[in-house]
Structures are given as structure tokens and as C-alpha cells.
Design a protein around this nucleic acid. Structure first.
Lengths: 191, 191
DNA sequence: TTACGTTACGAACGATCGTTTGCTATTTTC
DNA sequence: GAAAATAGCAAACGATCGTTCGTAACGTAA
């Protein structure tokens, strides 16, 4: 295959990332391999890695892509809601829907990455941690605005519910998980 | 190294499993490799795998060991408590202590395995799922005994809190996570 | 039109993966 | 005491890992 134009190369880059996010959602960011990605994309390994320089940078770009996707799916639809309890309730609804019917075949990418890298120092872990910490601050800020007691505890609880729900959906294949998730979150918010 | 007696071989077997559980708690059951295990144990790869037959059987034995350890650390100390709310509160205390100060360097093994294998069919996933389902039934039974509304929802919520707490402890290195975990569980039980 | 930059390839690198084979040394069994 | 069973090793298997190299083909800018 000959060289493509720069515009086409950018599309190739994107397509590789799409595939990377899909594969990593089930096999993990570490289980993601250049060779498999190359086969899937009908490219050479060198052609794939050439777009990123190293596997770690590929992992980081895939992670950023997944974060963007997540924000677009969960945060953007509710960002316009009134800050405080109304927005928290909207988040509870949207978040649990997202977990119950996830766009990635392996469930929530960020939850999986959290557990995969929680004990492995490096830029991937740092990035996951940063994204999660930001989200916890967003939740706590709205909880404070809503006048709820101990906003950090509220944020903590909402996040644990979401992570556990991912497991209930994927591992236990519990069809009621999304409903239970929303119910649990609403209980936290309205007690 | 010459052959050892059967009693010594059993000890070797156990020592390999100990190491396997430790390594897998941070690197995952898939990141666990025979070669690394052999180096750690100062054995040959063949000597290691000879005890288990295949990597998958090693994974399953390590998983069973981790399940036993977990039960000894969390369930056994509270099993004698009065079934119902008293035991659930004891579980909340013991479980959150366990999560905050885990014997494995990589945090709760079962939580990690849940997320690692939740989308990968096979005996490992089946075993994790079975163990978790059993635990959920135990929790729900006590919740029912306690007269709590929707016992399955209670079990679901307690489990999500535990899983999320593991992430807060490991990834966020949140020193208040264990306390928040216990508080969240008690709120679920006494509302 | 020429020169340069870049995409992507094929091939190879050393390392490591899980597993198998052949063997030795020892324990266990008869 | 002879024979069978077995723990563990050394070496090698083919496969795959991430990465590097040289090169061809093409787009882009001078």
C-alpha cells in the first residue's frame, strides 16, 4: 500500500484509535497489542505504531479518546441542567443509562482502566487518576450547591455505585443493574 | 536441583500459589507469567508449570486461593454474629477495614479479577462470577432477615460500594476511603 | 520540475510468552 | 532391594511481543 495524503492519514489515525478503544474495552489497555491492531486494520505493525511512536503513547491516546467519548455520552447531555440537585439527578439518570447500555463492547472503559492501572505507576495511571479526580470534583461541587451534607462523601458514593454497576452489568449480566444503579444514586441524593 | 519429597512438593506448590496471588493482585491474572514466577521462585519454568499443568489451571488455583484468603479475612470473623442487621453491620466494619488495609499489595484480588475477566468467557470468569453471586446471596439473605426493603438492592449497593472503595484506595490513594466506605454501607443499612 | 517530507510497508531485531521433551535424582511403593 | 512414580531442570519449540531499519511511493512546497 502506497502512502496516503495527510488528510487520509489523519483518518487512518482516527480509525486506529477507534479500534484500539474497542479492543481495550474488553482486553484492557495492556492486552491491546500492535500486532492484533495491525491485523484488524489490515496494516503492517510498523504502519500502526508509526502513528503513535510507542505503545504507551497509543494507550494514552486511546485513553483520551475514551474520556472524550464518555464526556460526550454522560456529561454533555446534562451539562446544561441547573447546577445542584437537578443536575445531579440528571447525572444519575444519564450515567446509569450509559452503564446499562455502553457503547463499548467491554463496558465502561474508564472503570476498566481504573482497576487495570490502579497499582501500576506511569503516565497512564496518572491520566486516569486525573480524569477521575476531576469528575469527583464536579460531583462534589454540585452536591455542595445542592446543600447536601458532606459533598465529598456524596461524590464518593455516586462513583462507587457507578463502578460496581459496571461489574454487575458485565460480569453478572444483571438486567436490573441499570435500574438498581439509578435507584441507589437517587437514594444517596435524596436522603 | 534434585527431586523433593511429596511433602516438600506440596509446600513448593503452596509457595508458588502465594507468590502468584501477590503478583496477580497488581498485574492481573493475565499479567501473571510463568517465567516471572519461575524467576521469583528461583525455579525453572517447567518446574513451575509442572505443578499446575497449564497457565489457566494456575490462574484458577490462584483465584481459589484468593477466595479462601478473602473469606478468612472478611467472612470468618463475622460469621458468628447474629444473622440479620447485626451481622450486616459487622460485615460493613470488617469489609471496609479489609479494603483499607488489604493483605495483597494490589488491593482486593477478587475485585480486580471481576473487572479483568468480566468480558472474557472461560472458566476463570465463571469462577469469579460464581463466588460473587454466592456472596451477594449471603448479603441479601441477611438483609431479608433484617427486614430491610428489597434485599437484593441492599446486596447490590453494598457490593458496589466495596468495589468502588478499592479504586479509591488504590488509584486515588484516598486515606479516608475506608471510613467513607463504612459510612456509606451503614447509611444503606440504616435508612 | 525539483527537492523534501511523510505514509506505509516488509523484514528483521532481541525478548518473552506458554508449553513440550528428555533427563536426572530422589522418594515411594511393592 | 528392585521397580515404579515423580519433582525439578535444561533446553528447545513455535508464536508473539514492541520496536527499529531501510525503502518505496506519493503528497506537498519551493
Amino acid at each position: 500500500m502506497p502512502r496516503r495524503s495527510q488528510a487520509e492519514a489523519a483518518r487512518t489515525h482516527d480509525a486506529i484509535l477507534d479500534r484500539a478503544v474497542t479492543v481495550a474495552s474488553t482486553h484492557g489497555l495492556e492486552g491491546l497489542t500492535i500486532g492484533r491492531l495491525a491485523t484488524d486494520m489490515r496494516m503492517s505493525k510498523a504502519g500502526v505504531i508509526g502513528h503513535f511512536g510507542s505503545k504507551e503513547r497509543l494507550q494514552l491516546e486511546a485513553l483520551d479518546r475514551a474520556i472524550d467519548d464518555w464526556r460526550a455520552a454522560v456529561w454533555d447531555p446534562v451539562a446544561h441542567e441547573e447546577p445542584g440537585l437537578p443536575r445531579l439527578l440528571a447525572i444519575a439518570r444519564r450515567w446509569s443509562e450509559f452503564l446499562g447500555d455502553c457503547p463499548f463492547p467491554g463496558g465502561c472503559f474508564l472503570t476498566a482502566a481504573s482497576f487495570e492501572f490502579d497499582d501500576r505507576p506511569g503516565p497512564v495511571r496518572d491520566r486516569v487518576r486525573e480524569a477521575l479526580a476531576l469528575w469527583l470534583r464536579v460531583l462534589a461541587a454540585d452536591a455542595r450547591r445542592a446543600g447536601l451534607d458532606d459533598p465529598d462523601q456524596i461524590a464518593f458514593e455516586l462513583n462507587t455505585i457507578a463502578m460496581g454497576t459496571n461489574s454487575a452489568v458485565r460480569l453478572q449480566e444483571d438486567p436490573t443493574a441499570a435500574r438498581r444503579c439509578r435507584r441507589a444514586m437517587e437514594r444517596v441524593l435524596t436522603r
